[in-house]
Amino acid sequence: MVKILWFAHLSEAVGKRELEIEVAGMTVAALKKQLQEQYPDLVLEHVLTAVNEEYVADDMVLDNGDVVAFIPPVSGG
């Protein structure tokens, strides 16, 4: 199992702040694609992805017990 944490408006698109999902062995890119198919309102194009609180690229392969955080860029100021 991999735990997914949603931040900012992403949690609204998904309707929850956390999600546990069976995706070990999958890349981050494949996970994003699967989630976007599952939740049509979800936009993951520009989000920063962290696995276990470390920035990762889209080709990173997920493992059991990983905690994935999707953080959308904030623009105001």
Partner: peptide
């Protein structure tokens, strides 16, 4: 996110 008491400090050494 101050309202929801959330904070993430992401390591970027490999980014």
């Amino acid at each position: 996110d101050l309202w929801n008491h959330e904070q993430m400090s992401i390591k970027i050494s490999k980014a």
